[in-house]
Nucleic acid binder design. Structure first.
Length: 506
RNA sequence: GCCCCCAUCGUCUAGUGGCCUAGGACACUGGCUUUUCAUGCCAGCGACAGGAGUUCGAGUCUCCUUGGGGGUGCCA
């Protein structure tokens, strides 16, 4: 495959607007994007909206948002413009018709008038007869006049490409040469009865007109390539570089599909993340997602695993893209996320956290409304986090009204009520001292606790844990000094008082 | 069914005929650190799908078998 220095590399990602960007699609974009950035070429985004029945409103905006979240910018396409637009296939119908007329005129394509029912019957017949091709090319072929008049009469008319009767060998930059014997591909539809081109046709015309030099796509397209090459030859187009990447599966070997979410929901399980947006909403860092999917099918050849987008641009080469299908290991992604959360500079981490708060659906109002400075401190207190929901779990109580504190019975029993209420007694003792503490800072609070420990000859946990349960209701919170500072003196004392009132109910 | 692609630890992978006693990462197990939850640190477990060749020598090359995946749409 062409590498840096060769110049003029143009790649494209061509999603159809049927929903959010799938995580597998994200990897396809990433590799295309890397190829473009690496070679100083251009990355083109083209919207393949030729199927009006599957079109989902808003999905273009969603896909653009997903790409932006990942940091994968496009040079040409929606909102960016470019010299070879329009970049929506639905706006290119006259262009397709022009090339369609050429194919019709040269006899490389012909009108066909079978109904869907007839085609279905042909397929079944071919199956019972164990024939490879189900579509029988009509003999003689309908003339252009017949096709056009049938269309005028309102009958369903499509245009089919006449597959040449010769073997087609495609060079794939990942897989090597792939040869498909003649007679393995039937005459396929290139224009639907609604006048829209099919994917195969639009894609071939657009890639040529948009001067694409490298097509890097999923392996599910491998068998389409000979069709595309046949059309390129008929149209006098050049054939460029093709590369087909391995597919990404679930850990159990099934396809990662939107259906997985519905299935899990039905079983009462949390839905797995499938689309890029799912990972965003679930509180993953885009850095971690990018890093992880980059390593699904590519590796640097040494033992490095931690890569930012910039580092990937420097390191990525097509030679190191593998051929084997990969399973999506969510545990490993979580580990990557943990690493990234630890290595990102704090401003960036906070920015990502705010993004999470703005898109996640189950953020408590108190956290949503929290002021920035306090939120920053709260996040800082949670370093070591694996994923953003951990933060809300750990410090969410700080942002709730004092009166909302709910005490986990288990925590109360274990930490406060046990040993004749030793924890409650400790609370009384410590709250009195805290009340007189002038400097409400992490260091002085911790010093105060240490002093108590020394005085009473007890361990930190004997003091910190009762305090933790008293102010949070549970045994989970940041370090106790940071927790109390986040809360402030008034809330701390109020919550301890409230906690002491439950002693009598024990 | 037919066509095409693929094949190293549970998972992602390194390995391009001798550097392989098969390396790393995640997970797992055990230990350490620790005021909770996390984090962090150390150690251990763990793979060349099977069979024929080629070669002085094969995880690496060839063939077969098996297994997995993709395609076989007026979806992309």
């Amino acid at each position: 495959m062409t590498e840096p220095g060769s110049g003029n590399v143009r790649v494209r990602f061509a999603p159809s607007p049927t929903g959010y960007l799938h995580i597998g699609g994200a990897r396809t974009v990433l590799f295309n994007w890397l190829l473009a950035r690496k070679s100083g070429g251009s990355f083109v985004l083209r919207i393949e909206d030729t199927d009006r029945t599957r079109h989902v409103d808003d999905s273009v905006q969603k896909i653009l948002a997903d790409l932006r979240w990942l940091g994968l910018t496009w040079d040409e396409g929606p909102e960016a413009g470019g010299d070879v637009g329009p970049y929506f296939q639905s706006e290119r119908l006259p262009i397709y018709n022009e090339y369609l007329a050429k194919l019709l005129a040269s006899g490389d394509a012909y009108y066909a008038m079978e109904t869907p029912e007839e085609l279905q019957a042909m397929r079944e017949k071919a199956r019972t007869e164990k024939r490879v091709l189900s579509y029988d090319r009509p003999n003689p072929l309908p003339t252009i006049e017949q096709g056009e008049s049938a269309r005028k009469d309102g009958r369903p008319v499509v245009v089919r490409f006449k597959m040449p009767g010769e073997d087609i060998t495609v060079h794939d930059d990942i897989l090597g040469d792939v040869t498909l014997a003649s007679g393995q591909i039937e005459d396929f539809v290139i224009q639907k009865s609604d006048g829209f081109p099919t994917y195969h046709f639009a894609c071939v015309v657009d890639d040529e007109l948009m001067k694409i030099t490298h097509v890097l796509r999923g392996q599910e397209h491998l068998m389409n390539t000979p069709k595309h090459v046949a059309m390129q030859r008929a149209l006098g187009f050049a054939t460029f570089h093709y590369a087909h990447m391995p597919v990404i599966f679930n850990m159990n070997g099934s396809k990662m599909s939107k259906r997985d979410k519905e299935k899990a929901l039905k079983k009462g399980e949390p839905p797995p993340e499938i689309d890029v947006n799912d990972f965003r909403v679930a509180g993953y860092l885009p850095e971690a997602v990018v890093n992880f999917i980059a390593l699904l099918g590519w590796n640097p050849g040494d033992e490095r695993e931690h890569f930012s987008l910039d580092e990937l641009v420097k390191t990525f080469t097509m030679e190191r893209v593998g051929k084997t299908n990969a399973k999506f290991d969510r545990e490993k992604l979580l580990a990557f996320n943990t690493n990234w959360a630890a290595s990102l500079d704090f401003d960036r981490l906070f920015e990502a956290f705010c993004d999470y708060l703005s898109v996640a659906t189950d953020i408590p109002q108190g956290v949503r409304d929290a002021d920035e400075a306090k939120l920053r401190d709260a996040l800082k207190a949670c370093l070591g986090l694996r994923i953003f929901p951990d933060v809300v779990k750990k410090v969410g109580f700080v942002f709730a009204p004092d009166s909302d504190t709910e005490y986990d019975p288990k925590a109360v029993k274990k930490v406060l009520a046990k040993n004749d209420g030793a924890g409650f007694a400790m609370l009384e003792l410590v709250s009195a001292k805290l009340e007189t503490l002038a400097d409400w800072s992490t260091s002085s609070i911790e010093q105060l606790i240490k002093d108590v420990c020394e005085e009473k000859e007890i361990k930190m946990g004997n003091v910190a844990q009762p305090l933790r349960v008293a102010v949070s209701g549970s045994t989970i919170s940041p370090a106790i000094g940071e927790t109390l500072v986040l809360l402030g003196k008034d809330s701390t004392l109020a919550r301890i008082r409230k906690c002491l009132t439950i002693r009598d109910t024990q």
